[in-house]
């Protein structure tokens, strides 16, 4: 039906894992390659699209990002860049992981890029024990095994505290 007609006001409904429904303009939803493919493959926009892995809080964040990027014209790159850097600022780790998984699942490249970069920046320049503590990674190496790992690529461990 209407999904084949180009209409900017067309909307579709997304449903989060915890059952909340979000009414989204089509051009905003198209920021997600997953949704784009679903719409292209004749999935009616009248249907509710379930997103069983994404909770309402995360989905609201994702859609906020998509709306900003869908509405901005290409000449506003500077504005988008500052939006992007503000977007993840002060976000707690739990929310950041939910977001990176959602961006990965919904195939939203720009969001995936900035979320992955934020996690990478958290790892960078930190001693390994600190990285373990931040992310709650349990070191299950025996001391001998750990020493062997370090020796295997010795140059990569030079200069770490």
């Amino acid at each position: 039906m209407a999904s084949s007609i180009e209409n900017n006001n067309e909307k579709l409904t997304l449903k989060s894992s915890d059952g909340e429904e979000f009414l989204v303009e089509k051009h905003v939803a198209l920021q997600s390659t997953l949704l784009q493919n679903m719409l292209d493959s004749d999935c009616s926009s009248a249907d509710v699209i379930p997103l069983p892995k994404i909770d309402a809080r995360t989905l609201a964040l994702v859609l906020g990002y998509c709306k900003k990027h869908a509405d901005a014209s290409s000449s506003k790159q500077g504005e988008l860049n500052s939006f992007d850097s503000e977007f993840l600022k002060d976000m707690d780790m739990g929310a950041l992981f939910n977001l990176v998984l959602a961006a990965n699942f919904m195939e939203i490249k720009g969001l995936l890029d900035i979320a992955a970069q934020k996690i990478a920046d958290t790892i960078k320049d930190k001693p390994h024990q600190e990285v373990r503590e931040i992310f709650h990674v349990e070191n299950d190496y025996t001391p001998e095994e750990e020493a062997a790992v370090r020796e295997e690529n010795r140059w990569a461990f030079e200069g770490f505290p």
């Binding site: 990965n104 996690i119 990478a120 373990r132 709650h136 349990e138 070191n139």
Partner: peptide, 29 residues
């Protein structure tokens, strides 16, 4: 949470680090 991410996603995160840091994560666990 980080260790439970899919491998492909971890690879994307590590690809954004200087290779030295990416390789040194081998010691985490």
């Amino acid at each position: 949470r980080i260790s439970n991410l899919p491998n492909s996603l971890i690879a994307q995160i590590l690809s954004r680090l200087p290779t030295k840091y990416a390789v040194s994560t081998s010691v985490l666990s």
